[in-house]
Design a protein around this nucleic acid. Structure first.
Lengths: 337, 337
DNA sequence: CTGAAAGCGCTAACAT
DNA sequence: ATGTTAGCGCTTTCAG
């Protein structure tokens, strides 16, 4: 490794000089332009390798007005981000798609963007676009981001507009089908542990639950907010049990909440599914990490991540992807119903 | 919001014009230079707010040769990264420290850096420094990164050199103390499930185990590699059991592996701690998510993350932090020993 | 305390 | 196919 390489300071100028061509030709080679003679191509390529040349990102981005970076913005705290396998799947999906491109991912986990760091990062032109998942009604900084770069949302945006791009799963239908399955298995007193109602996913799954019950002319049971966390699910289940008149089934809007609920049900001396059937949502790894294994509505989170990245990349490439993509869910029958 | 703001294209030039000063003065205000008159300061500040000005990062970085960004590089796959609470704690710690600075974090989860994306990102001057955790003997791309920007390692580097900066926990001592506790509690046939031996943490904890046994003149039991994963831990435990002559205790080099081992022990009809005592390492959230709750050696991962960030920030500020920081571990007694 | 001027390293017309 | 010429938006001497 040369001294230059170690300082990380080889410039296009030096490459050009060493290869006996102009800066432009080096630039063309680096950017894969076809208008370069075989000899020039060969010479430049060799010199680049010899000198260990890597183009300066700032200079390139300043001149081309592109960064080849996209941001993933998650308005949650770190604990939640790492605690919920949903995010792992989303990130994997995005990464998988991005690794097939020359874009890099910048991850921002910021529940409230203290000091506007994330917002000004994006607005400073540091990324070409953003993917936003798990956003809440209260996340107003999102709007400022969306007004400065192309954005693709994971899940229906809080205030949906015509021009919004998003990739969602069919939450209403998924919840509907999940609840219907409970009914078909003979359950009649069906409660639900919902996600937070300041999130579209929380709202939509609750709606699906209600629609299924209405279709069978059944009275809704207890509705408790479990906040999409295991602890929240446990607390919600506790409230349902404490209210007396235990349900014979609970539709729980995420597997993580179901895990919490399961522990509470166990402590109460009730059996699953004999006394209470439990229907989850996600089919994340936690579904099979609990006893009994969860019957749950699978949502394709990895595919959702991949698709979001694809839509954003298309947008940045000047293509015109569809504004809305809805992915289907699928019932996975295991032991809890 | 003005049209300019929406295009995200207000430049320092426009701010200067609107405030009736030169570019230089605006730059001074933005960078908090003291050499600005109160009137100029006031005018510029007001215009910046009005126009919603955010300096262009690429331009700033090109001119100043600083990015105010640091990379966290994790040579693991996504599944592992999200599956091990250790990383959650590390990232939280780094974030906590960085949020008190004006640096942002760029996260790279890349087990092998396909296409040299991470490496060239760093070498392109996109970040001022890097934190590298969980690296293996085989991760050679790390060297190319370390030769172009200041690096702080999480854990003793694979090939330690004088000039390396790193923050580690006292793995040898932690493992030594953990094993000794097992001995003091009367256990004599002590096996271990080690981490991968291409990682310093794996090597050091195994060494601590051996030292403790040697100090008591006890014969080492089975040594199985559990790969720092739950599945690996389960497989390792299975091998230990299959070999016959079950141990009366196992020192397991991570809580995650202990979880896997616990499941296998349960399936074998053995009781913990009556038949086999289990000592974990980490005191991550999984320690209390299993039955029985793990007796384990706590390592301060959040603090480690914070400290790594502090060392890197000091380095970038031209200070001279200590090269090596060793954090202490602490025994947490619960129900598995 | 302030402004003018010279780049930072690269891309992108525009010629040739 | 290749080189020349302008910048991209900002920081940073250097004068004054």
């Amino acid at each position: 490794m040369t001294t230059e390489a170690m300082r990380g300071s080889v410039t296009i100028e030096e490459v050009a000089a060493a290869a006996g061509v102009s800066r432009s030709t080096v630039s063309r080679v680096v950017n894969g332009s076809s208008a370069v003679s075989p000899e020039a191509l060969e010479a430049v390529t060799r010199v680049i390798a010899e000198l260990n040349y890597v183009p300066n990102r700032a200079a390139r981005s300043l001149a081309s007005r592109q960064t080849h970076a996209v941001a993933l913005i998650v308005p949650e705290d770190t604990t939640r981000f790492f605690g919920d396998p949903f995010f792992a799947a989303i990130v994997s999906g995005i990464n998988a798609r991005l690794s097939r491109s020359d874009y890099v991912l910048n991850l921002f986990i910021a529940n409230d963007d203290p000091g506007d760091k994330t917002t000004s990062y994006v607005r400073s032109g540091a990324v070409d676009g953003a993917i936003i998942v798990s956003h809440h009604t209260s996340d107003t900084f999102i709007d400022r981001i969306a007004s400065s770069v192309p954005v693709v949302y994971g899940g229906r945006p809080v205030r949906e507009r015509e021009r919004d791009y998003y990739v969602d799963v069919d939450n209403v239908r998924g919840a509907h089908d999940a609840t219907t399955y409970l009914i078909e298995r003979g359950r009649r007193r069906i409660a639900t542990i919902a996600g937070p109602l300041d999130m579209p996913a929380g709202v939509d799954r609750l709606q699906g639950y209600h629609e299924a019950l209405a279709a069978w002319e059944l009275t809704p049971g207890a509705v408790e907010d479990g906040n999409f966390t295991a602890d929240g699910g446990a607390a919600a289940m506790q409230r349902i049990l404490d209210a007396g008149d235990a349900p014979d089934a609970v539709f729980i809007a995420s597997d993580l909440m179901a895990r919490g609920a399961l522990a509470v049900i166990g402590s109460a001396g009730l059996r699953v599914p004999e006394d209470i059937a439990i229907m989850g949502f996600d089919d994340s790894p936690v579904a099979t990490s609990v006893i009994p294994h969860l019957t749950t509505m699978r949502q394709p989170s990895f595919a959702q991540g991949e698709r979001m990245a694809t839509v954003l990349l298309d947008l940045l490439a000047g293509k015109h992807p569809r504004h809305v993509t809805i992915l289907e869910t699928e019932l996975v029958v295991r032991d809890s119903v």
